[in-house]
Structure formats: C-alpha cells, structure tokens
C-alpha cells in the first residue's frame, strides 16, 4: 500500500493546565489514504474538530506525531508550514466564511492571492474553477447576494482553486436544506472520485458519513470505532490514483 497522505499516531491534545486541564484527544491513531473519502463522526465536544485541526496542521499536538506524505509535520515551521497549508489543503466550512462585500471571484482567488500568484493567472484559474462549478455567471456578484447552496459552491471553488491534495469539510451541509445539501455532497464526492482529491469530512450527519469510503467515530477523545462503508469497499481497497485527468465535475 502507498504512503498515506496523513498519518497520526498517539495523538494527545490538552487545553489549559492544572485542575482546569482538559484533554480533547487522548491517544488517537488515524491514517488518511490518498484518494479516499473519510468521515470523522462524533457528538459535539467529542474531539472530532480538534482532530481535524491537527490533521490540517492548524494546530500542534501536545504529544504524538503527525506525518504528511510520510514526513513528520512538526519539522515544518513558519514560511514552509504556510506554504504547505496553502498548497496542500482546501477548506470547506459550515459557516462558509466568505467575505460578504467582496465579489465571488475575489473570494475564490483568495488562496492564490495569499500564495502570491500574479493577477492575470489568478483571474484565469479562478474563472476556470467557477466554470467547472457552474458559477461563472456569478463571478462579479457580491458573495452576500448568493443563496446558501451557491455560497457553499463558492466555498468549494475556493477550496479547489489551489488544486489541493486534501479537502477538509467541516459540516459542509450543516447550514443547507436537504436538496441543496445533497447537491453539495454530490459535488464533493464527484471531486473525490473523478479528480482523486482526498476528502476528510467532519460531520454528525449519519447520511453524509455513510456516503464516505470509511468512517471513524470519535468519542471522549478516543477513536471508538473504525468502519468501512460496504458500498465503498471496492474503492477503499483500491483507491483512485491521485492526479487522474478530470472528466468534468458534477455540480
């Protein structure tokens, strides 16, 4: 089996000290394989968000190791860490986190701007990804004028624009009604299937979790269960090759 994209071992994360010390994670081992879709489920306060933050290198563990593509992540510092975050990961949040007064295109190209990509190149790549998601006609609209489903598609476009290896989705459908939620799910799984982008979904939505190749359940800072979804067993055993040519994405 190839090197996992992300691997964590013996992960502990504690907040505070003394009597108020609280352990959010109490020894977690997880492997995220390239090209799979992984659901991290659990009740609120179970530590699933903390786990996601550690996987996304936004946080450092109290103890334990995080490896990115087989290399220990705690060696990454400052500029290099920022570059890895910028180029390896994409984020989709429940609350969207769009800048309301900025246009759709400006929101989408934010990661490219941070990466220091030139103006023309930014626009070209931003428009290309909006085209793929069927939002090209909304490029000049203000983000605040969009519907919930459109907003989440813009967020996905923003996560995609840097061509990331892994997309982290934190309750991606939490703020959407069933129909639009389903459309957003289709979009994410389509990207996973057709472009080989690894998908890590944090959710407490059973239905969403069941669509993932694999799920881990976090309870009280420990992994309670790890299961492979029956429908996705075949793909999980032989994950799609990353970087496979795109054949168009379902919107």
């Amino acid at each position: 089996m190839s090197t996992p994209v992300l691997r964590v071992e013996g992960l502990h994360r504690a907040y505070g000290r003394g009597p108020t010390r609280f352990e959010a994670l109490k020894g977690v081992d997880v492997e995220v394989r390239a090209g799979e879709s992984l659901a991290i489920v659990g009740k609120s306060g179970s530590g699933k968000s903390t786990l996601m933050h550690l996987l996304a290198l936004l946080d450092r563990p109290t103890s334990g190791s995080v490896e990115l593509n087989g290399l220990p992540a705690d060696r990454l510092r400052g500029r290099e860490l920022n570059r890895v975050r910028n180029q390896t990961f994409g984020f989709v949040f429940q609350q969207f986190f769009l800048t309301p007064s900025a246009t759709v295109l400006e929101n989408v190209i934010l990661p490219l701007k941070i990466a220091g990509v030139g103006r023309g190149e930014r626009k070209r790549r931003g428009m290309a990804v909006l085209e793929q998601l069927g939002l090209a006609d909304k490029a000049k609209n203000k983000a605040i004028d969009l519907s919930g489903g459109q907003k989440q598609r813009v967020v996905i476009a923003r996560a995609l624009v840097n061509d990331p290896q892994v997309i982290f989705a934190d309750e991606p459908t939490g703020n959407l009604d069933t129909t639009t939620g389903a459309a957003v799910e289709d979009l994410l799984f389509g990207l996973n299937r057709e472009r080989g982008i690894t998908l890590v979904v944090v959710t407490h939505d059973e239905e969403l979790a069941s669509r993932c190749d694999r799920r881990i359940t976090v309870r009280d800072g420990r992994i309670e269960a790890s299961a492979t979804a029956p429908t996705a067993a075949a793909t999980a055993a032989a994950p799609g090759e990353p970087g496979r040519p795109t054949e168009g994405v379902a919107a």
Binding site: A56, R79, F97
Partner: peptide
C-alpha cells in the same frame, strides 16, 4: 476575526 483566521488557515503568514 474569522476572515483573519481563514487567511491564516490558508497559509497567510503573521507578518503579512
């Protein structure tokens, strides 16, 4: 605040 958090999550350095 959230916008700053997002930019930092996307790899924007504190100096910037």
């Amino acid at each position: 605040t959230r916008e700053i958090g997002l930019m930092k999550a996307m790899g924007m350095g504190s100096g910037r």
